[in-house]
Structure formats: structure tokens, C-alpha cells
Amino acid sequence: ADDEVAKLLVDAYRKNDEDKLEEVKKRYNISDEQVKRLIRKVL
């Protein structure tokens, strides 16, 4: 599931889509710190 979330985050990140990032964060209840970590893992 982590990889799936990471893909969604990276996708939103690449598109610079703040709304999507927020949506994913809320849906999976993850912190900014986790977001950064997941994005770093993929990029």
C-alpha cells in the first residue's frame, strides 16, 4: 500500500498539484514528514 500511496504523491508532486497532495494526505492520514519521505523513496 505504501508504494501505491508513494506513486500518488509523486504523481501529484510532479504535476505540482497541491490539491491532490492534500487529498492524498487526508485520505491516507499521513503527515507532511511522511509525504516527504515517501516522495524521496520514489524519486
Rank of each mutant, 00 (worst) to 15 (best):
K41W: 07
V10C: 11
V10M: 13
E33H: 05
E22L: 11
Y28C: 02
Y13C: 09
L9Q: 00
K25W: 00
R27G: 03
V35E: 04
D2Q: 09
D17F: 04
R14A: 10
D2G: 09
N29E: 07
V10K: 05
V5P: 04
K20A: 15
L43T: 07
R37F: 04
I30Q: 01
D32N: 07
A6E: 10
V42E: 11
L8N: 03
V24K: 00
K41Y: 08
K25P: 00
K25R: 08
Y28W: 06
S31Q: 04
V5H: 03
K7A: 11
N16Q: 10
N16M: 09
A1V: 15
V5Y: 06
I39H: 01
E18R: 15
K25V: 03
R40P: 03
K26R: 13
R27H: 08
R40G: 13
E33I: 06
K7T: 08
E23F: 06
D32K: 03
R37C: 12
A12Y: 07
L38N: 01
N16P: 03
D32L: 05
R14Q: 14
E18A: 14
Y28R: 01
Y13E: 02
K41C: 08
N29G: 14
D32I: 05
R14E: 14
K20E: 11
R37W: 05
S31H: 04
K7E: 09
A6N: 07
L43G: 05
I30E: 00
R40L: 11
Y28L: 05
D32P: 05
R14P: 02
E4Y: 15
K20D: 04
N29V: 03
E22G: 06
L8M: 12
S31K: 03
I30S: 00
R27Y: 07
L21Q: 02
E33M: 06
L21K: 02
N29M: 08
V24F: 08
K7N: 09
I30V: 07
K15W: 09
L9R: 00
V42R: 04
D3M: 11
K36V: 11
A6M: 13
I39S: 00
E22D: 09
L9K: 00
L38D: 02
D2W: 15
D11K: 03
D11T: 03
V5G: 04
R37S: 13
D19K: 14
K20S: 09
K15M: 13
R27E: 07
D3V: 10
L21V: 07
R27Q: 10
V5D: 02
E4K: 09
I30A: 01
S31V: 02
V10Y: 14
A1Y: 15
L9H: 00
V10W: 14
A1G: 11
L21D: 00
Q34T: 11
K20M: 14
K25M: 08
K26P: 00
K25F: 01
Y28G: 01
D32T: 07
S31P: 05
S31A: 04
N29Q: 10
L21T: 03
E33T: 06
R14W: 14
K25Q: 06
A6D: 05
Q34E: 15
A1I: 15
A12T: 02
Y13F: 12
V5E: 02
E22Y: 07
D17W: 05
L43W: 06
L9F: 04
E23S: 07
A12M: 03
R37Q: 14
V35R: 01
D19Y: 11
V10P: 00
V35P: 00
S31G: 05
N16F: 07
E23R: 06
I30K: 02
E22P: 00
Y13P: 02
D11S: 03
V35G: 04
D11M: 03
